[in-house]
């Protein structure tokens, strides 16, 4: 004989009101509905929260955590360009002419290409524009290894302002011709350079690479492109930047186009800062394999979001949803620990 499930009781409603009243707005309480019918209990608690201006923040078994009041907008306080989907990163390919010892996605001449392809990139650009994305950022691997890069870039710049990340070492021959066909009014080149002198840069990226990168910066400038320079430095060197900035000034790179970022412990990097989904503001990143949380981990399962790139708006919405959940959890943790 199966025991009957007791229906939801009005006592639960009274307990709910009583418990929530006992904590200040912004705090949470846990209510256990015991052996009551689960669906009916959750329906009652949800309806009460809706009518009383409170919020269910978690349901686990028969315990429901209710926030007194409404939670603040978890995205409040972010700059507009930090909102998920304000920019979309695309890995055009993963193969590279270099094998940097800190590459976050393990690119090298031996890496599989895993190209995004013209058709997918066109659809990404089209859907990104429709989804109110403000900028596309193309990266790799080394995008200039692709023989159709000028066409790929055009599909992007036709729709949105675009930034193309490169090591700047391949601006010769047919590749230079491809560069020249790109839309200077809509495209920014971001070239990697790690130091003011060759030693540090070459120690990570290979002998002779610094000279070629600096030459690439000058070529890009000469061709009329806006050039940003991005350096990747160990966190303990982030305080010794002025000589480097001074050198970039001499190359004609304006200060707000001098991007210095800390080395991340990702890919083949043996050290660096740890970046996890719950500590990292997402930047929607698309590869041939699907959608990732952030470009720094576009080769790592822990930041894989979905295989479905399209509809792109859905992928952006999913990352936004997960981000809001992380922010709420972080707020909840902040709520609990100060009293401990």
């Amino acid at each position: 004989m199966v025991a009957a499930i007791p229906p939801v009781s009005a006592g639960l409603l009274l307990d709910l009101v009583d418990s929530v009243r006992r904590v200040p707005t912004g705090r949470s309480v846990s209510i256990d509905f015991g052996t009551c019918d689960r669906d009916a209990a959750l329906e009652l608690i949800s309806a009460w929260c809706l009518s009383s201006g409170n919020e269910i923040v978690k349901t686990e078994g028969s315990a429901v955590t209710v926030l007194h009041g409404r939670s603040p907008d978890p995205l409040a306080g972010l700059d507009p360009d930090q909102l998920p989907g304000s920019r979309v990163w695309v890995y055009t390919n993963f193969d590279c002419n270099l094998a940097c010892d800190y590459c976050c996605v393990r690119s090298s001449p031996k890496a599989e290409r895993r190209a995004i392809g013209a058709d997918r990139l066109r659809q990404i650009a089209t859907e990104a524009a429709a989804a109110e994305v403000t900028e596309l950022i193309l990266t790799g691997g080394e995008p200039f290894l692709l023989n159709d890069l000028d066409e790929l870039v055009k599909t992007c710049t036709d729709k949105l302002p675009t930034t193309l990340l490169t090591n700047g070492m391949l601006f010769r021959g047919s590749r230079l011709e491809r560069l020249r066909r790109m839309d200077r009014s809509r495209l920014t080149l971001q070239i990697s350079l790690d130091s003011a002198t060759p030693d540090i840069h070459d120690s990570h990226r290979g002998a002779g690479s610094w000279v070629k990168a600096v030459a690439g910066i000058r070529t890009a400038h000469d061709e009329g492109f806006r050039v940003k320079v991005a350096a990747t430095l160990p966190a303990d060197q982030m305080h010794e930047l002025e000589p480097f900035h001074g050198f970039l000034d001499t190359l004609g790179i304006v200060r707000h186009d001098q991007v210095i970022r800390a080395l991340a412990h990702r890919g083949v990097a043996e050290t660096g800062i740890e970046l996890t989904v719950d500590s990292l503001i997402p930047e929607v990143t698309i590869t041939a394999d699907g959608v990732y949380w952030h470009p720094v981990a576009a080769d790592h399962d822990d930041q894989f979001v979905t295989r479905d790139i399209f509809p792109l708006a859905d992928a952006i919405a999913e990352i936004t949803r997960q981000f809001m959940e992380h922010r709420r959890s972080a707020n909840a943790i902040a709520e609990w620990f100060p009293c401990a």
């Binding site: 939801v8 009005a10 409603l13 009101v17 009243r21 009652l44 309806a47 009460w48 009518s51 009383s52």
Partner: peptide, 15 residues
Amino acid sequence: TWQAIGRGELLPGAF
């Protein structure tokens, strides 16, 4: 308090 418990509308069979 009557409003806080939903004026009898959340659980019509109760109050």
